[in-house]
Design a protein around this nucleic acid. Structure first.
Lengths: 148, 148
DNA sequence: AATAGGTTCATGCAAATGCATGGAGTTCTG
DNA sequence: CAGAACTCCATGCATTTGCATGAACCTATT
């Protein structure tokens, strides 16, 4: 067996992470829980729900969501049209737009989230031991923390 | 500290994996290596390059690529227009379309792939130790293997 | 062997996405 | 403090995507 360089290990790890994400995502997407919200819409509402005051600047939201700035702008526009979020100017920086989760948005997020969590339990839970799940969480957090 | 259920561990692990994927992906996308191919196009050419005979049925390709069947069909159509792949009927199953990497397609894939690998080395390599990279690879492979 | 049911792929069409750009506001600089 | 440079967001426009559907083919049942 030839020696494996750090570069090769990094490439392997990323490849494995990416493919695992694709495989799991496909199964999660196939589960019948996305009747009220698309996955991306859910991601936005979920991220807002975690934020202090259930509100975020559009720009900050954009750092969590893998979507271009104009696309996120329009996704939020649609969510506002559905009554799930509101958009108001930031008094502290008048360029900014603050996106806030509404009560209805929180309700829908929780409703979908409950079913989504069950879906994750089914697809991810049985794949690894509890220790392995913890290790995976730790390594992914570390990897994420090292970005930019 | 309250006890943590298996369901919660699974949700945490998936959340961490997903967020890490987003963060790394963002950095990889920002690197200046995508002038000849988009990331999705690269993914298709890369996947074909690994396949036996550098060719795959469209349906099999679709299992590796996170894209709907019609979208992949048209992405392959565009790649064929660029001369990077060919499409021919499968003699064994005349419903099928076999997508094959051309020499030019392989050349472009390698050219982009070299720079992409360097990009991965920079963004993923320093984040974890070599043992941790190996562990991450192993856990992701196991997770992926447990899907469907 | 005929028919029903399933599989694989392509196409019409509406919706979503990204890029380029511009306007409004903020911060930096000399 | 004037103006240049930068930041944040929205909009026009072309491209890409997904959904619904249909055509062609394969397979199983009787």
């Amino acid at each position: 067996m030839p020696p494996v360089s750090r570069t090769e290990r990094a490439a392997e790890a990323w490849e494995a992470l990416f493919r695992a994400q694709v495989a799991v995502m496909r199964n999660l997407a196939a589960d019948d829980v996305w009747d009220e919200l698309s996955m991306r819409e859910y991601d936005v509402l979920f991220t807002l729900g975690r934020a202090p005051g259930r509100r975020l600047r559009l720009h900050d939201l954009n750092r969590e969501i893998l979507l271009s700035q104009p696309s996120l702008s329009r996704l939020v526009e649609r969510l506002a049209g559905s009554g799930y979020v509101t958009r108001e100017g930031d008094p502290g920086d008048r360029r900014g737009t603050v996106v806030a989760l509404t009560a209805e948005g929180a309700r829908v997020q929780k409703s979908v989230g409950r079913r989504h969590a069950a879906s994750i339990r089914r697809h991810v839970g049985p794949a690894l031991s509890e220790d392995e799940l913890d290790t995976l969480t730790e390594l992914c957090a570390k990897l994420r923390g090292a970005q930019d």
